[in-house]
Design a protein around this nucleic acid. Structure first.
Length: 264
DNA sequence: ATGGTCGATCGTCGA
């Protein structure tokens, strides 16, 4: 494996609206792998060439208008799988996984976009919980496979009160419901580690700030973008971080990039 | 504060 290897996740909220911002970020930070969410594009509309020109292999799982995930990697992307197993009738594009050969090691990387689930009490919330149940089952099988796993993305879950500037404002939101938080803890209980929590246990660490009401200026944020690592991937964890500076740029996404550095 | 902001798409939904 390259020393170190950087894996980043970023909900870019529209690849067409964010193309220049994404290219600028990749030129500056040069992650080895980047997991994108909310590309809001069909596969044919994804500007793959612009990313290939920066040296990235591209794999997408898009849909028209909403959702959509992608993996970009300077190393090859092998055995690409699209769609979260467990419901053949689920047509929403929220999951892509691949194997990345990194030197003498193999790594499994996932880009996931967990359903938002609002408003609670509707089929959207039950879809979120059902999706998380499927996620738990599939994560267990990936862990059992013993290939080091980095499961990254927009989880749309605020795990704990300290993951919000104003937790009281989220009490009636799907992102902070007890059922959502319990399902997230069930993932950790499989043996997955929240890399940002581990490396940055302090308060005030957020990855999303709403566009409305000057949330970023007030640091009124939440931490909902996570990198969950299997035990054998945690053994390689060197550092992690949140690139908050992108939120202050022109035409920002409401989410910022979150990353881990791994080394053999 | 009874709005407020974005993106995809072109009236309105999703976040």
């Amino acid at each position: 494996m390259q020393l170190p290897m950087k894996i980043t996740t970023w909900n870019i909220n529209g690849v067409k609206a964010r193309l220049e911002a994404a290219l600028a970020y990749l030129r500056q930070e040069s992650p080895d792998v980047i997991c994108l969410q909310e590309i809001k594009s069909v596969d044919e509309g994804f500007p793959a060439e612009a990313f290939q020109d920066l040296g990235y292999n591209v794999a997408t799982h898009g849909q028209k208008g909403f959702n959509g995930v992608a993996l970009l990697s300077k190393l090859p992307l092998e055995d690409v799988t699209r769609g979260l197993p467990g419901d053949d009738g689920d047509l929403q594009s929220r999951w892509i996984e691949a194997l990345v050969p990194a030197g003498d090691k193999m790594l499994r990387v996932v880009s996931l976009y967990l359903p938002n689930g609002n408003p609670i009490g509707t089929e959207k919330f039950s879809y979120k919980l059902a999706w998380m149940k499927r996620l738990q089952a599939h994560a267990a099988s990936l862990i059992a496979d013993e290939t080091p796993l980095v499961m990254a993305g927009d989880y749309n879950v605020i795990p704990e009160p300290e993951d919000a500037k104003r937790p009281e404002a989220w009490v009636h939101d799907a992102l902070f419901q007890p059922e959502s938080r319990r399902a997230f803890r069930a993932l950790l209980n499989l043996g997955l580690t929240d890399a940002i929590r581990t490396c940055h246990p302090e308060k005030g660490v957020y990855t999303f700030w709403d566009y409305q009401a000057g949330a970023f200026q007030k640091n009124d944020g939440i931490r909902i973008d996570h990198l969950l690592l299997s035990g054998n991937a945690v053994d390689m964890l060197r550092s992690s971080g949140i690139d908050k500076f992108t939120r202050a740029a022109e035409k920002p996404s409401d989410h910022v990039p979150v990353w881990v550095e791994l080394a053999a």
